[in-house]
Amino acid sequence: MEPAIETTNLTKRYGSLTAVNQLNLKVERNTIHGFLGPNGAGKTTTIKILVGLLRASEGTARVLGQEVHVDQADLKLGIGYMPELPRFPKHLKGKELLDIYGRMYGMNQLERRAQIPKLLDLVGLKGRENDLIGKYSKGMQQRIGIAQALLNSPELVILDEPSIGLDPVGMVEVRELVKTISKEGMTVFVSSHLLFEVEQICTHITIINRGVALVSDTLQNVSNLISGPITLQVEIVNLNESVIAALKNLPYVKDMTKSNNTLNIPLKTFDDVRAEISKTITNAGGIIVAMNTKGHSLEEVFIQLINKTQGGKP
């Protein structure tokens, strides 16, 4: 089976600005592929070419085994797409929007009646489906944006910065949602400018900067490229041997270092394991007074990657 997405030397220029530069991207099926890069890196431009909204200046893109052009209706049957900060007709109610889009997918009334309430529930819009979209908050527009991307149970779901503009709770919900839809067998291609977000949900990562892909690999390989794993700093009153022993038993805990009351715990995982760690410490009799994550800012990561991949020239 062909990859879900494959681009060959994909290039897009806006006048003299090259937004996407010779991009070779490959998204295998049944993966959650993160498309990571700072603002202006060329993520949205790439995605818009993939969904046929923009024409490539050079190179080709194939989606679900078909070469992409502007205006291919049938190819869209297999793609669910949530635009960056999506906007929908203000005069429609949430439910009407999904109903009309459902009709465009050729879903019959039975299918629409089964699918739409399920999706509204999934994205947390239950009870607001009869409000006009013009009355929706930004977060609610994001949510209906996700719902409409999943309407047709597509093979490939493309989400352009799905958590942008959401509150922290909403961001967590979106991450959970992405994991859920991936379990249903959909391939997910999700862009983000937040490293930790991508780390938490993706199996594969492509990092893009100034239109150039710096690295594209599994999460594990990319994380090895990035200097060291994430470190948790935990300040513990009555830090004793049994706490340390309990922590060492956790599979994802590497060699810890101790300074005064603070433990530095490097993690071998990108999952959020803070709750588990804190439970382990508490159960072993420790009392946590502070916990910090020492992550890497995206800028640090890029500088490292640029150094590693391009010999230091940004």
């Binding site: 797409y81 007709p89 889009y101 997918y105 050729g106």
Partner: peptide
């Protein structure tokens, strides 16, 4: 209004 983006990415030709 930007509504063209979700519309043209549905399975309907222009």
């Amino acid at each position: 209004s930007g509504t063209i983006v979700p519309l043209l990415t549905k399975p309907v030709s222009r």
